[in-house]
Design a binder for these strands. Structure first.
Lengths: 164, 164
DNA sequence: AAAATACTTGACCATTTTAGTTGGATAAAG
DNA sequence: CTTTATCCAACTAAAATGGTCAAGTATTTT
């Protein structure tokens, strides 16, 4: 099963994009700050997401990334697939040749599980996540924290508790 | 998500045990042959399975392992848990402190997925697997192949196609 | 045109995990 | 007392993970 930090980061970043998709493209530096993901790592991920047609990019000042489709038409599984993590828990990748060219004893079991996971992640769109109360709460917290960091960076004297 | 070869091997070995559980305990050497898993690796796995109370062991000639409970009372998820692979896909292991002590944006999503997987693997017992037609077919093939290997080892002249 | 901003690409790397191996100790059966 | 089998503890090569670093390319603002 390939579902690691990489895939989770990609989904998190795409969700951040969906949340902040109002008008202007979102630069990766902002996502990096809000989500605590290193900028260069995000660049790697978005390179793939763009090649897979999930996001559009805009260069230059004021540039950044945008969702290529409405959030309601992007399922979580699309993001994970784009990032090259397939949701298959079989050893053979579904080839049924796990044991010397023949299926192993538990081949079907892992196939069934893979299908379960795939269906589940297909059934959830970014839009649905955006609408969740818990997601909105976390996003609000992240936005305010980011704001305080901006103030701090600007050299304001006011003391906003940043990470306590 | 921790669901790798280790967990798959453990489930496969336990299923082999369930299939060949008639009277005598099953030695790991047989499972090793049938399932193509190295003996010493199996020993590691069964050490855990025994400590977790899923199997009973008998030493000495004629010894081996037995299921500690009826196959109908052992779910796949028990085996995977015993082997120390937890079916949790969150980064924080469900602690909800994925981002500096607070839940990350996608925390709930991964929790939901973890629950899905857990429920699925809880709903399937070794007994149910034993009764599957495909499993019985694979087991029959493995048994006959093992038989030919035994003949070969005994120095019989007859040529049984072993792995072609 | 210059500077600033942002994306692109590829190489690199430390750490952890995986999937075992090696080597032996212990126990029971014959 | 030898064989068969489990038990146990180190050790390890290779792969994957989760990034960083450096150098460059493209675009827009001023």
């Amino acid at each position: 099963m390939r579902l690691t930090t990489k895939g989770r980061y990609a989904v998190t970043a795409m969700l951040d994009l969906a949340i902040h998709a109002n008008d202007a493209p979102v630069p990766l530096a902002e996502i990096s700050q809000r989500q605590g993901i290193s900028l260069s790592y995000l660049e790697q991920l978005f390179s793939r997401l763009r090649r897979q047609g999930l996001v559009d990019s805009a260069r230059g000042p004021g540039g950044g990334y945008r969702l290529a489709r409405p959030a309601s038409e992007i399922a979580v599984v699309h993001v994970i697939n784009a990032i090259d993590e397939n949701v298959n828990v079989t050893r053979c990748g579904g080839q049924a040749d796990c044991q010397d060219g023949d299926p192993c004893l538990t081949h079907d079991l892992w196939c069934d599980l893979s299908n379960q996971i795939h269906e589940f992640l297909s059934s959830i769109s970014l839009q649905q996540l955006v609408e969740r109360r818990t997601v909105r709460e976390v996003a609000a917290r992240q936005d305010s924290r980011q704001q305080t960091i901006k103030y701090k960076a600007a050299g304001t004297e006011r003391d906003f508790a940043v990470s306590s």
